[in-house]
């Protein structure tokens, strides 16, 4: 990794930590439970966006199933608690592990597919999972959803659990991307055949990226399940995946801070626009099209370009 790209990664980490520090200070000013809840759900999307960005932005594998793995993680923990009364300290890691294992298996299977084929396969997988969970009434209670025992009803506790976990995720992603593994992933994204010819085990690293990304989605799902104490197949709607993609593209794909920023921006804006008549998805979809068409680096890229302009 060249000096300047290391510098850039560090800037992105600092920017995202600064953003999270601001988020951590919000409860000083806002005590409204509703808005704290909105911010908590935004952070749920931060995990999904961060995980998808690792897979799509850094490793170049465009999966269309991030929301599905959140659903799988949430059902993993939810079913353990519902059927066998497994306590949260065991069911939370079990849910994440379930999502990661299924993700690893899927990653292993779809390895040789690229571009549109990968997108189609993951999209089909997402729909199959949602149909199966939504219709297996006896085991999952289907579309009614599953209630999960709430660990605590104190919003503030949940709020800081989410903030702390997001910070941990950012630090972990930073460490990963700075390391050799990060270089391998980016090499695979930029030129897979070239990377393989330089001795990178592309199969291994692509599966690893898939597994990590789905583990992050699973983490989002289990936290959300215990926070909202309800899981339903709606967590895995394609629309949710669409939101995650909007967040990453609007914030700025292939940067550490872009998805974090994008998740907060898109989710808060969608709450605000919902009251203005439900035009939020029209706005986001248009923004994504414009960004993908004309300005790939998203809002973070725009900000950086303005900041980096040399002083006259």
């Amino acid at each position: 990794m060249t000096r300047s790209s290391q510098q850039r990664l560090r800037d992105e980490l600092v920017a995202s930590l600064a953003l999270m520090a601001a988020v951590a200070a919000v409860p000083l000013a806002v005590t409204n439970d509703y808005w704290l809840g909105v911010l908590i759900v935004s952070m749920y999307f931060v995990f999904l966006a961060g995980g998808w960005n690792l897979l799509a932005g850094y490793a170049g594998q465009f999966s269309l199933a991030p929301a599905t793995f959140a659903m799988l993680g949430a059902y993993g923990t939810g079913l353990l608690a519902y059927h066998w009364q497994v306590p949260a300290w065991a069911s939370i890691p079990a849910g994440i592990l379930a999502a990661a294992l299924i993700g690893m298996t899927l990653g292993r299977i779809v390895m040789r597919l690229r571009g549109p084929y990968l997108a189609l396969t993951t999209l089909s997988f997402a729909e199959i999972m949602r149909i199966v969970i939504g219709n297996s009434y006896d085991f999952t209670r289907g579309d009614l959803g599953l209630s999960v025992p709430a660990l605590t009803n104190n919003r503030l506790v949940w709020y800081y659990v989410f903030v702390a976990t997001v910070v941990l995720m950012q630090l972990a992603l930073y460490a990963l991307l700075r390391s050799r593994a990060g270089l391998y992933l980016m090499a695979i994204r930029d030129d897979e055949i070239g990377a393989a010819s330089r001795g990178i085990n592309t199969a291994f690293w692509k599966t690893a990226a898939f597994t990590l990304s789905t583990a992050l989605a699973g983490l989002a799902g289990v936290l959300y399940a215990h926070f909202s104490s309800l899981v339903s197949p709606e967590l895995g709607l394609i629309l949710q995946t669409g939101l995650v993609i909007c967040m990453v593209f609007i914030g700025g794909i292939a940067s550490l801070v872009g998805p974090v920023f994008g998740a907060f921006l898109v989710y808060l804006a969608s709450e605000a626009l919902r009251e203005a008549g439900g035009v939020q998805l029209i706005v986001f979809a248009l923004l994504v099209i414009l960004i993908a068409r004309f300005f790939r680096e998203g809002l973070w890229g725009l900000a950086r370009r303005l900041l980096e302009r040399p002083a006259p």
Partner: peptide
């Protein structure tokens, strides 16, 4: 193409 048409569908 994946991203742009996906967003077009949403739009």
């Amino acid at each position: 193409a994946v991203v742009v048409t996906f967003a077009l569908s949403l739009l």
